[in-house]
Design a protein around this nucleic acid. Structure first.
Lengths: 188, 188
DNA sequence: ATCGGTTGCCTAGTAGCACTAGGCTAGCGC
DNA sequence: GCGCTAGCCTAGTGCTACTAGGCAACCGAT
């Protein structure tokens, strides 16, 4: 019998696909093993636990999103950069809901996802380059931006906006306009 | 043998307490049954499923939060109202993390939580009374407010802010100032 | 006061999940 | 070709959700 060729990377990528297909909370070791045509117990020589697997998916997602954010920000500044980043963020969340959900898990500083989380945080802070804010305003601003992006995407995904005829794209564009105006006026 | 006296309401309240203590994702029918000193199977004459139980917790939380929001908004307008609502929202989330997590679940329009969700939405919209916005700006603004509140609280809870010395209270106050300025300037 | 019927709780059982222990062998390095 | 590592296996534990069917506590009607 030839072997299935399971590796941690292949497991993580498959788990991320599974998360997008069936939802993050339905990513199980058993389902993943089925997808590889092996028994669930066989996966424990590659991953330590189900939690370990989910952390790896979170790290993958954070890295992918940081890559997209970096691409979106390249060569842009000010509102251009803000809008490009925000759209990259929202698009990623809607294209990869399972991966996005994984990103929201509690990640302690010593996990394998820590470098990815740090890089993601750096990219978010890079939006502000064009607005020239000093500390601690910069931190407050980046927290506000991240909150708005995450909150909007999260409510959009859980259906918070669907009971009203106003399209969420329009509200999103308006929110970005508002954030830009806010950042320009921030120092007061 | 005297009976345990389980009712749907007592189950829901106990499940909400359990959620706050051990986390929303760890609310199980078995754990709840243990808390009442009965077998897990016995609960299925009161609730239809674990999902049904979680929806009831969500409805309870939405109602409680709407009550707090109503109390916070009573007799206030403008920034006063905004800050009071926002603090009621954030305090509730931090005092009742499990209930708050339950609120974020997908609730279809025909669930038992629908009236509570509607009431919660109405309270959020009531913040804007003092700012006199017409549609569709009102909808855009209420979505932006809700996004910011939820996003901030959510990131705060999952530890997104803890790797930076700047206190989250200060960033929160700054975000509320910013939102107030935004709403006053909204019509442009 | 007793008698029915309802319903609250029970036992028993199925099936899926995470995870451990220990065995076998494929396929690599020598 | 030989041995060792590492990948996959079976077997088993215990927790979870949930169903079927039984018994007895309690409620209302006579």
């Amino acid at each position: 019998m030839t072997r299935a060729g399971v590796t941690v990377d292949r497991l993580t990528r498959a788990a991320a696909e599974l998360a997008d297909e069936v939802g993050y909370e339905n990513v199980t070791v058993s389902a993943l093993a089925r997808r590889f045509g092996v028994r669930d117990a066989s996966l424990y020589s590659h991953i330590r636990s189900a939690h370990d697997l989910r952390v790896r998916v979170a790290a993958l997602a954070l890295t992918e999103l940081a890559d997209r954010a970096a691409a979106a920000l390249a060569g842009r500044a000010g509102k251009d950069a803000l809008v490009a980043f925000a759209n990259a963020y929202r698009d990623y969340a809607n294209q990869h809901p399972g991966r996005y959900a994984a990103m929201q898990m509690d990640l302690d500083a010593d996990s394998v996802a820590a470098p990815a989380a740090r890089r993601h945080a750096e990219m978010t802070r890079a939006i502000l380059r064009g607005y020239r804010l000093a500390e601690p305003d910069q931190t407050d601003a980046v927290r506000m931006l991240h909150s708005t992006f995450h909150g909007f995407v999260s409510l959009e995904r859980t259906g918070g906006f669907r009971h009203h005829p106003r399209g969420s794209d329009a509200s999103w564009a308006r929110a970005l306009d508002a954030l830009d105006a806010l950042l320009r006026a921030w120092p007061q």
